[in-house]
């Protein structure tokens, strides 16, 4: 196992860890808005790291570009759906959670 493979596996494992962190955030965070934060950001970074780790193993330049294209598409889809879910929650009247001492800023 060469240096490159070790680096690749490290990147990919780090990416998977970010996915786990995103799921933990989804469970631990107190309301839908904060959960969107956790899921969107952690998963995007996780997928980015996994794609970066897989890039050297791609069999051709086109295949490498396809990996990047998938990441960019997932990035855009994630950003859009995070915004749409947050907007729908506002629409449904879900009140954002806030710490008791910040209560007056809560709407």
């Amino acid at each position: 196992m060469g240096m490159l493979e070790i680096l690749q596996l490290t990147l990919i494992t780090a990416g998977a860890c970010f996915f786990v962190v995103g799921s933990i955030g989804l469970l631990r965070f107190p309301d839908v808005y904060t959960r969107v934060h956790a899921l969107t950001k952690a998963d995007n970074l996780g997928l980015g790291l996994i794609v970066l780790g897989l890039l050297p193993g791609a069999e051709s330049l086109a295949a490498a570009c396809k990996l990047l294209l998938i990441w960019m598409l997932a990035l855009a889809a994630n950003g859009c759906s995070g915004y749409l879910i947050a907007r729908a929650a506002r629409k449904l009247g879900v009140v954002p959670w806030s710490r008791p001492e910040d209560e007056e800023e809560n709407r």
């Binding site: 962190v21 955030g25 808005y33 956790a38 995007n44 970074l45 996780g46 806030s98 710490r99 800023e105």
Partner: peptide
């Protein structure tokens, strides 16, 4: 986005759950 992932990861893992959300 690297900073964002790190930031949200730190808040998730931290036992005190350091969140002070606002609109």
């Amino acid at each position: 986005s690297l900073l964002a992932g790190g930031d949200v990861g730190r808040r998730t893992i931290s036992p005190r759950l350091p969140l002070r959300p606002a609109i």
